[in-house]
Write a protein that binds this DNA or RNA. Structure first.
Length: 255
DNA sequence: ATGGTGGTGCGACCA
């Protein structure tokens, strides 16, 4: 089973690239973030034509998540807790014997800002949400744009990013608490080296210079850990014309 | 020089 996550930064703009990538990559499950589309405008016909079912939770201009899957998704949930957050950042659903959680984690703008406080409280709520998911399902995958680089080896210039947003200690500790529930970074099950990134700023020729961060992550729960047989980042997609600022990340599981 | 790019949607805002 192949699982993938991609922050598309506007599904409307990226639909042709999505179609091309899905055609070759053929993920069984694909979590999208920053679709930036109201549900009435979700391109369901085009997604179905690619051979996928889709569930989605969108809003205008900002945020928005979707979950594409070759087999249908059931028991769909689109918030961390009832009424917790009007922003559409969460989609959880069951696909086969796997509970899939797709997150678009709050960016946080800058350490100490109001948005940063919102990010930390959002991550607390995500922690509680995932505790509940694990209580109900043994096989849980948590994927998405976490807007956190877990470790210095996920950062092109750790000293420049030291205690900056996306890399700060409070964010990393929040992620560590989530991981301590019993999740494993599937990419790190297969690759120990640094220099692998999933996001590059549009500005300053960051992609060309490989000034990136690995902030798009796929976690698997304890019972799934030994099944991780491959993981990667399709950075070629970032090289295309009019790309998202994120590349798709994927994990392959046995059976 | 707090610059630079891109998406949304037409002026900021968010990332």
């Amino acid at each position: 089973m192949k699982l993938a996550s991609w922050n598309v930064n506007s599904l409307k703009v990226r639909l042709p690239q999505l179609a091309a990538w899905v055609e070759t990559a053929q993920p069984d499950v694909l979590g999208l973030q920053e679709t930036k589309l109201e549900d009435e405008k979700f391109p369901l016909d085009q997604i179905r034509a690619l051979g996928y079912h889709a569930v989605f939770s969108g809003q205008r201009t900002y945020n928005g998540v979707a979950l594409l899957s070759k087999s249908p998704a059931t028991d769909v949930v689109n918030e961390l807790a009832p009424g917790f957050d009007p922003q559409r950042r969460v989609l959880a659903a069951t696909v086969g014997d796997t509970r899939v959680v797709n997150f678009y984690v709050v960016n946080g703008q800058s350490v100490g800002s109001d948005k940063f406080a919102y990010k930390l409280s959002w991550l607390d709520a995500a922690h509680e949400f995932l505790r509940g998911e694990l209580a109900k399902h043994p096989n849980v995958v948590v994927m998405g744009d976490f807007n956190i680089a877990p470790e210095d080896r996920d950062v092109h210039d750790p000293d420049a990013w030291r205690e900056q947003v996306l890399c700060s200690t409070p964010e990393r500790e929040a992620l560590t608490r989530i991981r301590a529930l019993g999740f494993h970074d599937s990419f790190r099950e297969r690759e120990a080296e640094g220099g692998h990134y999933s996001w590059w700023d549009y500005r300053m020729g960051a992609f060309r210079r490989n000034l990136g961060l690995r902030i798009d992550l796929i976690f698997v729960s304890d019972p799934m850990r030994a099944r991780v047989k491959g993981a990667g980042i399709d950075r070629a997609v970032r090289r295309e014309e009019r790309p998202s600022d994120h590349a798709p990340v994927w994990t392959e599981l046995d059976s």
